[in-house]
Each structure stands twice: as C-alpha cells, then as structure tokens.
C-alpha cells in the first residue's frame, strides 16, 4: 500500500510510464477524501484511460476528473513580433 506522501508521485509515474497513457501534464491534488486530476489531453479516450488506470492501480481512491480536452480550433488573431 502506498502511503499518502508518495501517492502523488506514484500516480504521476503511472501516468507517464504506462504504455497506454504517457502523459506528463496531468496534475494530481489531494482533497480530504478524494484525488482531483487536472490538466488537458488530446482526446476523450486518453482522459478516460487515465481514470481507468488510476482506478485499477489504486482501487481505494476516490477520483474526481477535471481533465479537459485541448481545443483545436483555428486562431482568429495574429501576434506581431517586434
């Protein structure tokens, strides 16, 4: 069983090193009785896989997923560099 101090690190490593995830940009924040996941990924499948893998590896954890899908619309403005 992972202790509380190491839990965030264990989750971060799982998200980075798991061959079906490979996400380094997910934040993990402890609340009183749950873990809140944040950040953005490129697809809903990736978000769902993150939650699935954390639930599988840490079944005792209650997870809230605030992970968003990064928007991919065309820009409407240009920035002049000077």
């Amino acid at each position: 069983m992972t202790n509380d101090t190491d839990l965030e690190a264990e989750i971060q490593r799982l998200l980075t090193e798991h061959d079906r995830i490979a996400e380094q940009g997910i934040t993990v924040q402890r609340r009183d009785h749950l873990v809140v996941l944040g950040g953005e990924v490129e697809s809903a499948q990736r978000r769902d896989e993150i939650c699935r893998q954390i639930s599988s590896h840490f079944p005792e954890l209650e997870i809230t997923c605030d992970i968003g899908i990064t928007r991919a619309q065309a820009p409407s403005e240009v920035e002049e560099i000077s």
């Binding site: 940009g25 990064t70 409407s76 403005e77 920035e79």
Partner: peptide
C-alpha cells in the same frame, strides 16, 4: 522574444506570429 507554443498553453490548433512587419495588422 520567446513563445511557449505547447498546445495546452495556446489552447488552439496553432498560433500565428508576424515577422518583418511593414505595418501592424492583427487580423488574420
């Protein structure tokens, strides 16, 4: 000038930067 264009930072498909401007025009 340095710009971090990581997709989660710019939050759109791409940013556009204008160099060697003869005049300022911020519309695309």
């Amino acid at each position: 000038p340095v710009r971090n264009v990581a997709h989660p930072v710019i939050k759109q498909a791409y940013n556009v930067y204008q160099l060697l401007s003869e005049e300022v025009d911020t519309t695309l």
